[in-house]
Amino acid sequence: MRIRAAVSATLASAGILLAGWQSGAHVAGTASAAGSTAGTTGIAGGSVSSGSAGSAGSAGSAGSAGSAGAAGSAAKAGGTFVGDVVQTRFGPVQVQITVSGGTISDVTALQLTDDGGRSVQISNYAAPLLRAEVLQAQSANVQTIGGATVTSDAYLTSLQAALDAAHL
């Protein structure tokens, strides 16, 4: 009796893992799509691709749904999913996403340290900023001026020309 229970429990958990894996993979598709639409989520290069087994809680809920199709809707409803480890220029990165109501509500980096154990930046992305929030400059305290290529004629009235004139 005990053995039977153990075997069926094992089978059940294998089933749950499989369903969880499938739902993870399914969510990976939705997740990367959501990421690129949002444009600023900054998930480095599809790090949530082909999700491996979800965390215990989510695999459980997906597993209870039973079939792959239903697992998809379960994933849409919500859960936590862990991506593969991806090599980036910041080092190996693994992220976990939390999905609720079909959208990503949170992205957590699971590997956040480099070889020396220091925390590393895992993503770099552009965020909307107000003008007051960027590094400020007065033309009086810069030594050079960057800008889209000016023609020789436009140069004559440019800030760079004024700087150059002061240094000739």
Partner: peptide, 30 residues
């Protein structure tokens, strides 16, 4: 210190960016 021209008002700067010195990266293209 590099100033970046405001494309909507070419007589003013929109931002600054430090190049070289102790900051490392030394190139700025627009």
């Amino acid at each position: 210190q590099a100033g970046i021209v405001d494309p909507l008002d070419r007589g003013s700067l929109i931002a600054a960016y430090p190049l070289g010195g102790s900051t490392g990266p030394g190139a700025l293209a627009t």
